[in-house]
Computed example of a mutant assay.
Amino acid sequence: MLFYYFMLILGAIFVIGAVFAFIVMKGDRDYSFSNVGKSLGSFLVGVLLLAVTLPSLKYVVLKEYDVVSGKCVIEMTSSGRSSEADFDMLDTDEIFSFRDIPDLDAYGKAIPYYCKVTVTKDHMVEISYKIYDVKTRKLIVTSK
């Protein structure tokens, strides 16, 4: 969730900064290729970040969430200090990613779990997860 807000704020900063740079260039009448290229690049990156984050903003602000549940397999990848887990929901063929998930006893394609993943209504932003034992439905790990 923190990553979502980071992308949203960064996109807004890039767009506002690029517009400000274009205004300064017009006032100074300094249209060098370098200045125009940097400002245009910043503007395009900002628009891209906003295009990715703004469609889900309504659901995040209004806290309109869906819960996707069913059998899942969890693929863990770690690089350096952080680890990332991909929840592959077998019933719906959706994949959700979470960062800094605690270690499980076993994970991978051979070990199924029962998962409940809370996401926005458009299924673009992951909110939280709960991992249960597939047979006993005993709660193993939760994000909150």
Rank of each mutant, 00 (worst) to 15 (best):
V61R: 08
S42Q: 13
F98K: 04
V68T: 12
K130P: 00
I9F: 03
I111F: 13
V24Y: 11
M76W: 12
E94C: 04
I74N: 00
L139V: 05
R81D: 08
F43I: 02
Y114A: 10
Y132M: 05
E64N: 12
K130D: 05
I74R: 00
L44C: 13
S97L: 06
I131K: 03
G11E: 07
T118V: 14
F6D: 00
D30N: 10
K58V: 12
S79Q: 15
F3W: 00
V67W: 07
G27I: 06
Y129F: 14
M89I: 11
D28I: 00
V73L: 07
L49M: 14
S56V: 09
L2H: 09
T142I: 00
K71T: 15
R137V: 00
D66N: 15
M25D: 08
I127G: 01
F96R: 02
L40W: 03
A21S: 15
D28M: 10
V47L: 15
L139K: 06
Y5K: 03
I74T: 04
A18E: 06
Y113K: 01
V47H: 08
V47R: 06
L104G: 07
V45L: 15
Y5F: 10
K38N: 08
A18T: 00
R29I: 02
E84D: 11
F22Q: 02
T118H: 08
G46D: 08
I23S: 12
L48I: 14
K26Y: 13
N35Q: 09
G17E: 01
V61K: 08
E94A: 09
F14T: 01
S82R: 15
S97E: 10
A51G: 13
F14I: 01
F96P: 08
D66R: 15
L57G: 00
S82F: 14
K58W: 14
G41H: 05
A110N: 14
S78G: 14
V125N: 06
P112F: 13
A51P: 00
Y31G: 05
V117E: 00
Y132N: 03
K135C: 01
Y5M: 04
S78Y: 13
M1Y: 09
S39E: 04
F22K: 04
V60S: 06
L90N: 04
M1R: 10
V36A: 12
V119Y: 03
H123S: 09
S143P: 01
L90C: 09
E126I: 01
V15F: 07
Y114R: 08
G80P: 05
K144L: 05
K109D: 13
V125H: 04
V117A: 04
E75K: 15
C115G: 05
L104F: 11
D122M: 04
D28G: 00
I111W: 06
G11S: 04
P112V: 12
K138C: 00
T120G: 04
D100Q: 09
L10Y: 06
V134M: 07
V125Q: 01
Y5R: 05
V60Y: 08
I131W: 02
S34P: 00
F20D: 10
V52R: 11
E84I: 11
Y114I: 06
K138I: 11
G41A: 12
V15L: 05
S128Y: 09
D133K: 02
M7H: 11
V141F: 01
D86P: 01
D105K: 07
F96L: 01
L62Y: 13
P55G: 07
V15H: 04
Y132P: 04
Y129D: 07
F33W: 12
K63S: 14
A106P: 03
G27N: 13
D100W: 07
D122R: 02
S42A: 09
